[in-house]
C-alpha cells in the first residue's frame, strides 16, 4: 500500500509528494493491529543524482509482494526522498543551496526542504533497521560498502556483516555529518546503515543484485524474512583512519584508467595517468601509494588539481583469507591501445 509521507504544495497544480510503499505479511491489511511486528525500512534518493538504489527498491518490493507469506514483519520502501532532484538530474534540491543530507533532523518551521526532512525523520523513526542507499556521485565508482560512524559501530557492524557487501568502512565522527539522515536516526535510537555503491546516474545491476540479496539476508537474520537468503560474503572492514589512502590529482588533466576498480595492486603500480590531450603529454602517473585494494576509483575522466581519483584500503588492514581471494584475482588491467590492430580493423 502506497502512503504519502510528505505533501507540500508547489505554485502550479502540483504537490511535492514523498511516498513510500508499505508491504505487510500475508493476512495483514491496513486495518490490522501492527504492534508487535518489526519494521524494516529501505530509503534512497536523498541525492537526486544517485540512482543505484532504484534497482534495489524495485527488486525488494517486487520479491516481497510475490512472497508475503514469507514476510514476518513490516517493510517500508522509500525510493525517492528528493523527487525533484531525481527528476532534474540534480544532486540537491532545485532552488535550494544546501545538500538535503545536511539538513536533518529538519525543522517543521523552516524551508520546504527542512519541513520535508522533519516529516521523513518522523516517519522512519521507530524502524528496527533503516538501510539508506547512496551511490557515490557523478565522478567515482564505489564497491558496495557500508559507511558507519565510529560512534555507532558497536551497534551497527553486527548487522552490516549480513548485508552481503564488500566493505564496511568505519569513519571518524565530524560535526558536519551530524546533520545527515543516518546520524539523526542513529542518535535517536533508530539503527541506520548507509550503503554506498556504484556511481551516480547509472544502475550497476550486479551491485544492485548483491545488495538486494544482502537485504534479504539481513531481514532473515532479524527474523523479518522467512524465505531463502544467501550466505553473506565476508566484507573487508576498516576501523582505523590510517587503513585508507586517498589519491588526489596533483595536476589538472584527463584521467585515463589503467587498473580496474576493485583490483588488488602493489605499491608503485600505475593505476592510471593524467594526460594533456592538447600537448599529447602524460602529466602524471598515478601510482599506488601502498599495497592493497582500490575500493573507490574515478570513472569521470576530467580532473582538477585536487580531484579525488581513488581510495585504497591497505593490505595490512585486510584479513588474510579475504586478501588471498583478492591476490588470486590479481590486478586487473584495462587493455592498452594497439595501433596495429586498429589498422587491421580487428580492435575488439
Amino acid at each position: 500500500m502506497i502512503k504519502n509521507v510528505v505533501t507540500l504544495s508547489f505554485p502550479v497544480e502540483e504537490k511535492l509528494c514523498i511516498r513510500k510503499q508499505r508491504i505487510l505479511p500475508a493476512g495483514y491489511n491496513k486495518e490490522s493491529d501492527l504492534s508487535g511486528l518489526r519494521r524494516f525500512s529501505v530509503v534512497t534518493g536523498t541525492h537526486g543524482d544517485e540512482l543505484e538504489g532504484q534497482y534495489v527498491c524495485y527488486e525488494v518490493s517486487r520479491i516481497l509482494q510475490e512472497n508475503t507469506d514469507k514476510l514476518k514483519g513490516i517493510v517500508d520502501i522509500y525510493p525517492a526522498l528528493n523527487p525533484l532532484g531525481i527528476d532534474s538530474l540534480e544532486r540537491g534540491i532545485p532552488g535550494f543551496d544546501l545538500d538535503m543530507n545536511r539538513i536533518f533532523p529538519g525543522n517543521s518551521h523552516g524551508s520546504m526542504a527542512e519541513h520535508a526532512a522533519a516529516s521523513i525523520v518522523e516517519d522512519l523513526s521507530g524502524s528496527d533497521m533503516v538501510i539508506d542507499i547512496h551511490s557515490s556521485n557523478l565522478y567515482l565508482t564505489e564497491i558496495p560498502q557500508a559507511r558507519i560512524s565510529e560512534v555507532f559501530q558497536n551497534e551497527l557492524i553486527p548487522y552490516a556483516k549480513h548485508l552481503n557487501i564488500d566493505f564496511i568502512w568505519v569513519h571518524s565522527a565530524s560535526t558536519v555529518l551530524e546533520a545527515t539522515l543516518a546520524h539523526s536516526l542513529n542518535s535517536t535510537g533508530t539503527p541506520t546503515i548507509v550503503v554506498e555503491m556504484g556511481i551516480g546516474l547509472r544502475l550497476t545491476q550486479a551491485y544492485g543484485r548483491q545488495l538486494t540479496q544482502g537485504i534479504f539476508s539481513l531481514m532473515k537474520y532479524m527474523g523479518i524474512w522467512d524465505g531463502e537468503a544467501v550466505i553473506p560474503r565476508k566484507p573487508l572492514i576498516s576501523t582505523e583512519t590510517d587503513d585508507v589512502e586517498f589519491l588526489n590529482a596533483p595536476v589538472s588533466g584527463v584521467f585515463i584508467q589503467h587498473m580496474e576498480h576493485n583490483s588488488f595492486v602493489n605499491k608503485g603500480d600505475v593505476i592510471g595517468i593524467i594526460a594533456d590531450p592538447l600537448r599529447g603529454e602524460c602529466l602524471h602517473k598515478v601510482k599506488a601509494p601502498c599495497t592493497g585494494v582500490i575500493f573507490t576509483l574515478r570513472d569521470f575522466p576530467m580532473v582538477d588539481e585536487g580531484s579525488l581519483i581513488g581510495r585504497m584500503l591497505r593490505a595490512e588492514a585486510i584479513d588474510e583469507d579475504v586478501l588471498d581471494a583478492y591476490r588470486r584475482r590479481g590486478a586487473r588491467q584495462v587493455s592498452s591501445l594497439d595501433l596495429a590492430r586498429y589498422r587491421g580493423g580487428e580492435e575488439e
Partner: peptide, 10 residues
C-alpha cells in the same frame, strides 16, 4: 526574490 511562493517556505 523568487516571484513564486512555495507552501510552508520562508
Amino acid at each position: 526574490s523568487n516571484p513564486l511562493a512555495f507552501a510552508d517556505s520562508q
